[in-house]
Design a protein around this nucleic acid. Sequence first.
DNA 1: TATTTTTTGTTTATTTTTGTTCAAATCAAC
DNA 2: GTTGATTTGAACAAAAATAAACAAAAAATA
Lengths: 250, 250
Amino acid sequence: MNFQERKSRIVQTVDERGSVDVRELAELLQTSDMTIRRDLTQLASLGLIYRTHGGAMKVSLATDKHRFANKTAVNAERKDYICQLAANEIQEGDVIFMDCGSTVFRLCPFIRNKRITVITNSLPVVAELMHSEVAVNLVGGEVDKERQAVHGLIAEEHMARYRANRAFIGVDGISLANGLTANSEKEASTAVAMARQSAQVYLLCDSSKLETTKYLQFAPLTLFDVLITDNAASPDLLTAYQQAGVTILY
Amino acid sequence: MNFQERKSRIVQTVDERGSVDVRELAELLQTSDMTIRRDLTQLASLGLIYRTHGGAMKVSLATDKHRFANKTAVNAERKDYICQLAANEIQEGDVIFMDCGSTVFRLCPFIRNKRITVITNSLPVVAELMHSEVAVNLVGGEVDKERQAVHGLIAEEHMARYRANRAFIGVDGISLANGLTANSEKEASTAVAMARQSAQVYLLCDSSKLETTKYLQFAPLTLFDVLITDNAASPDLLTAYQQAGVTILY
DNA sequence: TATTTTTTGTTTATTTTTGTTCAAATCAAC
DNA sequence: GTTGATTTGAACAAAAATAAACAAAAAATA
């Protein structure tokens, strides 16, 4: 068995079974774990399979969300810490925008009992606030099933009709050099639209996202007024941001 | 079983069953409670599930659909018969309005696999069509928590932006003498707004509602083009309606 | 055949994931 | 409210998987 053949059999096996682990493949193909690992790394870089810790999966089974889920430690505590800070900023009677990011979603439990109005394009946020004290205004337009959110032209027109006291938005990446970046054009334009209509714009961003850059550069750091992050961020980094004129809460 | 697969299966199980507890999952996936808890925290932070004390729930508008579902159970067979007739009217490529009535909600299973666009103000309809072939356009505006729907000025403006081939609307009462009547002003005005924007308007109305009158008289019989009802209606009654110029499908 | 290149296997240190224990938080029933 | 049972997450330890370095084997080339 030459190594081309071995690799094609790996792809075949992964496709058949959906997922396999290194040990199984080594057994099946009568070779060492290390060789399998090397093969998997290579095949994954070609996009033929999706590499997991301990094995591999069929690409189609690993949705974007799961792919993200499988990445290292998405710190729930950090997000909750951030959301607690964010919730403290909210006043009774406020009208606030909430976008469809996963960090922003976690804000829901902290505002359940406040007498405020939330304008959002996120269906999970609506579901979460359905039985709460909060008055909800849902942004209309085309439903993006993947993100469980509403985006697009009509959605932006809708948002332009309202003025809010605060907007809470998330980003995929933020850096001093490249400003705010995102993985998706849709989320980016929604964030901008919400920011435009709000007196005070809060960026919710856990420290792991600081100084990371995603493919779409969509706004400068001046889009928001306050960056809320967690206390795991390095002090040097925070100082650098402050010197660049960014107000930080942590 | 690698850990990515485990997380996929957790999400899958939660979606299937609606809710599960930590112990069950640990048993099912042959792992420890702590591992399950860690997975749940992570998945929850991504918004894929909703973490509860002791387990997890499906994040979906469907979470509190049971109340609505109970309402739909009244005259279920008649309604399904009506919906089947309604679904037959729909062509591939159509754009249709669906309002927030319980009869109209039951149309969802019949259109899951059609390549059409649905414009609706009903959150249960959106939840139901989230995982279907149908493209969904959600009407924006203030969320009416009691009816799980969107109503109001902005909602009507939103609907006025679109033209549809067909509208499927429900009413609480219909009679030759009083025309269309409703229990709620909100639902009535939505129905009228949808009718105005559609080439063909279908009224879905089980026979128990024929010749009943509710408190709000909101439109004449000419609002709609076709009345779809069930075959439990008395022939005399149907004849009377036809003589009054109503097109009936049953 | 000898030499180079490529591929594979082994060892080791590092990283990631999992399991256990225990104090604190949460929930439910009173 | 208070109590008591259950659930939780933090800390730590154990297990598993990984990548890097290097050596051995196989293949390609001269």
